[in-house]
Amino acid sequence: MEGTSLYLPIVILLMQCSPSSPVTVSSNRHKVEVREFSDAVLSCMFHTERDQNPRIEWKKKGKGVSFVYFDGQFKGPFEGRASIEGATVTLQRVTQDDAGEYRCEISAPLDSVNLGETNVTLKVLVPPHTPSCEIPSGAVTGSVVQLRCRDQQSIPPATYSWYKDGQQISPPRHTNATYLINARIGILEFKSVAKEDTGRYSCLASNGVGPPKMCEGKRMTIEDVNVSAVVAAVVVVCLVILICGCGGYLLHRNGFFSRELLLSNVNYIPPPQESTDFKHTQSFML
């Protein structure tokens, strides 16, 4: 007993001097991904040293820092569509405006370390929308043709596949293929179109969030170059040039464009007209 009583003050002193756990803040999910118009849970858990009633704040980072939850109330666009349990916040029917980085802050004035924080990133996923498609109605054989497809709203960005007459066009398997497909930016390019490329084309956008969406199909017709029409047009142009040249030559030969004729026409001054009252004036003077 005497030995125990000797060590007891030392044990008590060590307990008083041992550091206590200050305020700590953590999250069990630092990256949250939810579909648009669904609820998002932003987790925040904390432990305090002595303060049993710490101050809880949520802020959103952007161009500046705005309050989400402050002084026991939700602020701004979150008012009326968010709830809190402990320090964990649930945002209801999130949109793209809600996406971003959030910070949970716990302030415990009675603790030795009186401030702790953790960050949670919210990503709002958007299913594909009907893509806009640029499909030419026609082209001539041998020309380079591009078909374009784009969905500006899907998150993450959509990937694209092309269809001809309802059948998916497979990506080319070798470098000598007559066409290329860029699934990331939605381009189908024909290096040299042929008549067999004629058909009804459409594009499908997908990103794994919601059901894929396809644009309305459009027919593209490939035709051969009309050689007869081209030759006829060239002949007509040559005849017009020949006729104009011959006509100009004949006019020049007949002196129509001579320098003397042009100068005489420019410098010609008509003679003054005689006064109709000349005789009357003379008789008056006599």
Rank of each mutant, 00 (worst) to 15 (best):
N182D: 14
F74Y: 01
Y7T: 10
T175N: 10
E33D: 11
N265T: 08
N53H: 07
V113R: 14
V25G: 00
G255V: 05
P19L: 07
A40R: 02
T198Y: 04
P19A: 12
G64I: 10
K164H: 09
K213E: 06
E33K: 15
T159H: 12
Y160E: 04
T90I: 03
G142I: 03
N114H: 14
R148M: 08
A205R: 00
Y163V: 04
T118W: 02
H129C: 09
T141F: 04
L147V: 08
S170W: 03
E117V: 06
H47M: 14
T175W: 12
D277Y: 15
T159W: 10
G138M: 13
V140N: 11
V124L: 06
D111N: 06
I169H: 03
S26F: 09
F278V: 12
A139C: 12
R253Y: 11
S202T: 11
L204Y: 03
P19M: 11
L262C: 10
P157K: 10
P54V: 03
T48A: 01
L91V: 00
A40K: 01
I269L: 13
V193G: 00
T48I: 01
L261A: 15
K63I: 08
T88N: 05
E57C: 07
N28A: 13
R253C: 13
I106R: 00
G72R: 02
C44D: 02
L110M: 12
S258P: 11
Y179W: 13
A87C: 10
S258L: 11
L115C: 03
I185M: 06
I10N: 09
V11Y: 15
I243D: 07
F46E: 02
G86H: 07
V227T: 08
V120F: 02
C104K: 01
L188S: 00
A183I: 09
L91N: 00
S38I: 01
C244F: 13
S161A: 11
V120K: 01
S5H: 15
D277G: 07
P131H: 02
Y7L: 12
Q92V: 06
L42I: 04
N28F: 13
